[in-house]
């Protein structure tokens, strides 16, 4: 017998959410969604969640199990039950409507922001446009996205920054940035390089972990970054921030100058900034305004705001001991 601890919420009846425990013994070879259904159909009909295809293709049934977003229909119940218990909650970063049902409207609004359709040349051939297998493979992964919102739910940046387009919209964007049939590649990467776009991702990789499909947004974000730099799109805040930031870190002599591929800009970004902050901690203590920090504050938009809010990107979870100091510095800086 397993305990399903489910976060219940029905504002018609009670304003505050609460947890309710259900006992159910899932037969071998059944999914978490099967369990939810059995609980709903035999124990409590008021339990609400979304589902449709039950074959991991419609993207309806994403929920949080033990704190991480998953597709309920894609997981064997026995695999998510730990010590006879599983905790089920609605997706994060979206407003709950009832029980495990959340409001997807903001999610779709962001999808809408990335011009989510092909912009081909006006003239159409009589038959299909040709696309090589290699060109197809560039968009093969991003086109598997089922819009389930699992990545969106668990993205650390979205927790602190509503403006961030988020992993799903960016994966969708790569679907067109990488499409050999699209004529707007440059304009797309320009738009995606603006604040709220690719450069605001902190490279935590959470979305890759959560994605039930090969879409894996973070990898797609890196691909867009590569295209942006290839296309010479540095002349915007995001890329400039990233580049000059890299430069300043280089300056500080803390990093290996030879290895700064696109892939690691963000990673070094956050980590580097912490180093800088530590460096200048002493200055601050002495009552001087550390200019480096001022600059940097403008440079890295989101990573720092996360630090400020106490949301630490997982990559520096273990490596930084002075987080409190960092927070204090920002507090003082603000004053």
């Amino acid at each position: 017998m397993a305990t399903f601890k489910i976060k219940r919420y029905n504002p018609e009846i009670q304003r505050e959410p609460y947890y309710e425990e259900f006992q159910y013994d899932p037969p071998e070879g059944t999914t978490l969604l099967d369990s939810l259904n059995e609980i709903k159909w035999t124990q409590d009909g008021t339990l609400s969640y979304r589902m449709s295809c039950r074959s991991a293709i419609c993207g309806s049934c994403a929920v949080k199990a033990n704190g991480h977003a998953i597709l309920a229909c894609q997981r064997q119940a026995e695999h998510v039950i730990k010590n006879d218990t599983v905790v089920l909650e609605p997706l994060g970063n979206m407003k709950p409507i009832k029980d495990l049902v959340v409001d997807f409207d903001p999610f779709w609004e962001k999808i809408n922001k990335v011009t989510p359709y092909l912009k081909p040349e006006e003239t159409k051939p009589e038959k299909e446009r040709h696309q090589s297998q290699a060109q197809f493979s560039i968009i093969d992964d991003s086109s598997t996205c089922i819009m389930c919102g699992a990545c969106y739910s668990d993205c650390n940046v979205l927790e602190v920054d509503d403006n961030f387009l988020g992993p799903a919209a960016l994966a969708k964007a790569q679907r067109f940035v990488g499409d050999s049939r699209d004529k707007d590649r440059k304009a797309r990467v320009e738009q995606l390089s603006e604040p709220g776009g690719i450069w605001d991702c902190t490279h935590c990789g959470e979305c890759v972990e959560r994605c039930p499909k090969p879409a894996e947004p973070f990898h797609r974000i890196k691909e867009i970054m590569t295209v942006a730099l290839e296309e010479g799109v540095h002349n915007n805040n995001g890329a400039r921030h990233a580049l000059s930031f890299t430069k300043s870190i280089k300056h500080s002599g803390r990093l290996n100058e030879n290895v700064l591929p696109v892939e690691s800009i963000g990673f070094l970004g956050v980590k580097g900034i912490v180093n800088l902050v530590q460096d200048n901690l002493k200055m601050l203590m002495q009552g001087k305004v550390p200019t480096v920090i001022k600059d940097v504050f403008g440079l890295i938009p989101v990573g720092l705001r996360m630090l400020k809010k106490g949301k630490i990107p997982p990559i520096i979870h273990h490596s930084v001991d002075d987080v409190d100091d960092v927070k204090r510095i920002f507090k003082e800086l603000k004053q």
Partner: peptide, 18 residues
């Protein structure tokens, strides 16, 4: 099907790109 392709539908391709 050509219309779907023109809209942007993703299709697997043969070695000639068709």
């Amino acid at each position: 099907i050509y219309e779907l392709e023109h809209m942007g539908c993703v299709f697997s391709r043969d070695k000639d790109g068709k």
